[in-house]
Design a protein around this nucleic acid. Structure first.
Lengths: 301, 301
DNA sequence: GCCTGTTTCATGCGGCCCAGAAATACACTA
DNA sequence: TAGTGTATTTCTGGGCCGCATGAAACAGGC
């Protein structure tokens, strides 16, 4: 076996991690129980990848004891499908994404300001040119930095963040409520069910600051899913872009538990009305929900 | 002089071309006439670049006879500012942009389909990896192609172009009329005047197919400028992105001169009402304008 | 101070190359 | 046919290097 696959203790490659997660998702969707058989070939076909990364993922799972070799080749589940989910609960962010967040954080903290060259950034963050380039492109699209003519980048003044925030909310006020009123709007009931579940869990859990990221991501998924119901890729892309943007600045929740309860309750209410076909009412509630969020003043950290 | 600057017959660098264009724009804005003096130092300061690219641009202009050396150093205009504009009327598209358009064209022509690897694209178009990467990123954002898990790219079926077009118009129907109603909406009167001028010129010119690109770009600028009045960068970015998208597929006008007249007339009408402060009426007219455009069926080429 | 001529240094772009990994082809089995 | 095991080919991400070019510093004139 010349090909190095999931060498002991080494972190699997990006694709291998993705396959890992998708296998777990597949097993849960299909409701596989202990003893169900998983084959390289079948998985490779369903996931539209070659057998190589699938095999790596399977040997990885086997090494962790979640699968056991099957008579006649292949593997079978050593436990229920839920056990698989523990392997890759959160797909780790990409190197470029991490760098993007790191730079955004430093800009907001005032550690970076004025102008800086790419070479200096490469030295500072110990990264290669490729990742730096994609990170800078993302930050430029987000308006955090700006390319200077000639050489280098200017770091835009984060003092102007408040207007940006206001514009973001005005934009979302235009797009999101309108999406609910599009002809042919329709939500997947399973998605609604899953969302309800998540919101109830969030409401039930006592608030801890560590939940901030999870809360943010749940919110992002809620708004994306809501707009996705319109079946319009541009509306959806607009919301996704807003979420990506907000991730740079807003990753921490600063409003305390009371606001969590109110936000979740409003979300659930919107879902209720949508399921009853009251799109106009839901759209209005969504508008109010966004207006309230826009009006919040962030307490000082 | 060790530094190679504007070597004879060689194409100047990207920055040098940009500086060239900005010098011409500056001369026109300042209303410089023959004999006006241009200095390296002053231009470098105003353009926020170093003297090196400025000098390259100046020697380039001098070589073309548009400038003549001035007593005591520096240069002076050999003719009016208008002559300078002939040098860089259209900033040539970037290599990545050219590649993007080329790939989009081939996809639409059916020359590319199925899946293809980056390496194959590099061979086919004779480009390096850097430009290819940015071009692919743009095409992916436009929904022309899609990254496959693992390696390679899938070329999305352009047969599905009609739904994409419909979604694009639905999106613009949401965003553009709403922009006119934003609080604080305000148009620059000079922009309005310039737009009127352009539209009148387009109406006056007898239709030729060669005007298609100019018409498209005028349309794009009109819609962008209209939305820019809202002072919201996200609304503006959304419209710009739509225009970029449409540039991939729609660069030819296929509806004949009658439609040109109608479209231009509607544009002018919208401007009229906006100048009279009738934002709601203008917004409604814009909505109708977009609906009519969406309903057009493109005649077979 | 404002400007040019010249030199020097840093930057960024592009190509080249390589190791690891994904895709693919082949042999073979149930 | 659906599948595994193995070998081979191809691809991609990342680092490295060289060169044209932009930035900056110095010298000197007005």
């Amino acid at each position: 076996m010349k090909q190095a696959i999931a060498r002991h203790g080494k972190t699997p490659s990006r694709l291998q991690r993705a396959v890992l997660g998708r296998i777990a998702a597949l097993a849960r969707e299909d409701g596989l129980g202990e003893g169900a058989r998983l084959t390289e070939f079948g998985l490779a076909r369903r996931l539209a990848v070659s057998r190589t990364p699938v095999r790596a993922a399977l040997t990885h799972l086997a090494a962790r004891g979640l699968l056991r070799p099957c008579a006649g080749g292949g593997y079978e589940l050593a436990a229920g499908a839920e056990a698989l989910a523990t392997v890759a609960p959160h797909p780790e962010p990409d190197g470029a994404q991490r760098l993007t967040l790191a730079i955004a954080r430093d800009v907001r903290a005032g550690l970076l300001s004025g102008t800086i060259s790419e070479a200096a950034l490469m030295r500072r963050y110990r990264v290669g040119r490729a990742v730096l380039a994609t990170a800078l492109a993302g930050l430029a699209a987000a308006g955090v930095i700006e390319r200077r003519p000639g050489t280098g980048w200017s770091i835009l003044d984060p003092r102007y963040d408040a207007p940006t925030r206001a514009e973001s909310y005005r934009f979302r006020l235009v797009v999101e409520p309108a999406a609910l009123l599009e002809p042919g709007y329709r939500l997947d009931p399973r998605w609604v069910g899953g969302m309800r579940e998540e919101h109830r869990a969030m409401l039930a859990a006592p608030w801890r600051d560590e939940l901030a990221i999870a809360l943010f991501e749940m919110n992002a998924r809620f708004h994306e899913g809501l707009v996705a119901g319109a079946g319009n890729r541009f509306l959806l892309a607009a919301v996704q872009q807003q979420n990506r943007l907000r991730r740079f600045s807003n990753y921490d929740w600063g409003y305390g538990p009371a606001r969590v309860v109110q936000s979740c309750t409003e979300h659930l209410e919107i879902l209720d009305w949508l399921e009853q076909g009251e799109a106009e009412l839901a759209s209005l509630l969504l508008r109010r929900h966004l207006e309230r969020a826009a009006a919040l003043v962030r307490p000082l950290a």
